[in-house]
Amino acid sequence: MKKHGALRVIYLVLIIIFLYAPIFTLMVLSFNEGKSMGKWTGFSLRWYASMFSDEEIMEALGNTVFIALVSALVSTVIGTAVCIALPRMNKKIRDAFLALNNIPLLNADIVTGLSLMLAFVAFGVSLSMGTVILSHITFCIPYVILSVRPRVKQLGNTGYEAALDLGATPGQALFKVILPEIRPGITAGFLMAFTMSVDDFIVTHFTRGAGVNTLSTLIYGQVRIGIRPTVYALSTIVFVTVLIVLVLANVFQGKGARARQGKRI
């Protein structure tokens, strides 16, 4: 038993090393004085300095955040609205909606990206940041539905009916009961959509206009001509940001759950 226990821990630790070694390598290299990928020549913050003064990187960073915010916002509104409407729909239509929802989710990004590009070209829409945002909304909506729908399902129809029964109009029932009840799902959906948008490369690659760069497309471009150490600094910043955001999200979630439990007798 004891021996097995040790083996288990070793296995899990090895996987953790596998998962984090590449990321930590980048982090270490970002503080390296020299340009080499393999040789440590001394500690320096110069790559961070040159990253922050690199207009291209800063612009790509701004674009990434802007695109992610807009598409997460729009997809959250659209996805939440349809989730609320779903339980009041006839079963056949609902099943059809959900099946359609799975298409962008399970389809390959390359097909999603290329087919959207074909559509933009066919309708004479010239590729720009706008087309990137429209495309991101398309693949973000399913993720919003994914996180909002379980909440709506869990709420059932009775919350809505109870509100009507107590004299609320359908509008009042929506804003006073349904939306507050499913808020955690909406928040999660928004975050999910935001992350998916930030993380996307393939769809952006095919639907962006000339000169429009996000972090992903910028890195892809650099990889072809040779990676500059500024990108290591960038990835360190990205990783640390992701870490902080996720830890905060978890802490807040935990706090909320504990606060609710605290009231328990």
């Binding site: 590449p22 990321i23 980048l26 972090l215 992903s216 890195i219 990889v223 990835s235 990783f239």
Partner: peptide, 11 residues
């Protein structure tokens, strides 16, 4: 949650 391209680049 880390950017997909950065992860690939790391390798």
């Amino acid at each position: 949650w880390m950017n997909f391209l950065l992860r690939t680049m790391a390798w």
